[in-house]
Nucleic acid binder design. Structure first.
Lengths: 195, 195
DNA sequence: CAGCTGACAGATTTCAATATCTGTCATTCA
DNA sequence: TGAATGACAGATATTGAAATCTGTCAGCTG
């Protein structure tokens, strides 16, 4: 790639890294590749990220944060909590399924990255669970839900729907019954939240 | 191994294969190893199993059937359906966690084998879901549960508890909060089954 | 002087030659 | 005669030498 004259920022390195990961996949994407794509020496990349692992973690975090952002709007809404919970879970499922279906290789790449970075994933899950907790709390306040520990309940809802957002089930998201399975699980969960 | 004088049966081959898998792991266990362990030529093994894949599938099926058997007693019981459902799920979780904790390498071996054999796993899941369906049906009959499609409900319960029996979550079964997480999910599900 | 370079040591990956394995089958053995 | 053998072809796995990569740092450059 032609050396760009703009100053080298962490942001530009992250963008180039995403591109390299998209092109070469997680196994063959090297720091040297990233530097080459930016037209700089690989030593310069190490000025912004202490290690290759740190660089990959930063890319992972960016990607996960984008997903969280897509959902936060629904969680912060002010409609009927039951509908909001259902919409939120459906949006999470739809987003994951769309990404996995649209570009399976890229999705596989990010699945590898998330596997490497327990910490970033843990924070992402904490973030999503916090969004769910907000919905559950609103529901308890309005009398739509019963729960003596909204945080634990939110966690349970998140874990119970794992099959519809955890990458390890990605293969099954395109199968015929997936939508019906999702509805069946969410129906039982919503009934279980009634006072 | 010393050549045993007994006649060579599929059963003896399966036992030897399990032993070889236990010793060498899934990647390095070969048909030649199995034949050596039995003191026969590898051609003899091919008289009983058409391919290496068929042999591994038979071993997988045996292992999965053993797990199903452990649970069928609970499903066939005649106590309170809600308790039975809780006990059945707890027994499944306990069995999986015990196997994964007692011999992680062997568990990893069988995780690889199940990954290879979608068919055997599918049948195993169908078997477990049938056991669950029986409990749900009993509950509907006795008025303890509400469901207009016990089979779909059983499937939903099985999928919602995936985190506590699916091998891809094995790492997390030993973490401190696992038991509490399990209880929280099962509580919501059982509440969701009430009429 | 702040930011970048490129040479370097040790770790990791690639690649091609070599060895082993899978699955078949004509032959042997009891 | 029916079960077992072992040699064989093609596929797969192992190995070790060569190439590449990671992470550091002394020195260059604008």
């Amino acid at each position: 790639m032609a050396p760009t004259s703009e100053t080298l920022t962490a942001e530009r390195i992250l963008e180039a890294t995403e591109e390299v990961l998209r092109r070469h996949g997680p196994a063959k994407a090297t720091v040297v590749d990233v530097a080459r794509a930016l037209g700089v020496s690989h030593g310069s990349v190490y000025r912004h990220f202490r290690t290759k692992a740190a660089l990959r973690e930063a890319v992972t975090k960016r990607w996960l944060d984008r997903t969280s952002g897509e959902l936060s709007g629904i969680a912060a809404g002010d409609g009927d909590p039951a509908t909001r919970l259902r919409d939120w879970l459906a949006a999470l499922f739809a987003a994951k399924r769309r990404k996995a279906g649209a570009d399976p290789e890229l999705f596989a790449t990010y699945t590898v990255l998330t596997g490497e970075n327990g910490t970033a994933v843990g924070e992402h899950i904490a973030d999503l669970t916090a969004q769910l907790t907000r919905i559950v709390r609103d529901g308890v306040a309005s009398g739509d839900f019963a729960s003596d520990d909204p945080q634990a309940t939110a966690r349970a809802v998140f874990q119970a729907t794992g099959r519809f957002h955890d990458p390890c089930y990605a293969r099954e998201w395109e199968e015929p019954g997936a939508e019906a399975d999702f509805t069946a699980v969410v129906d039982v969960l919503l009934r279980g939240l009634r006072p």
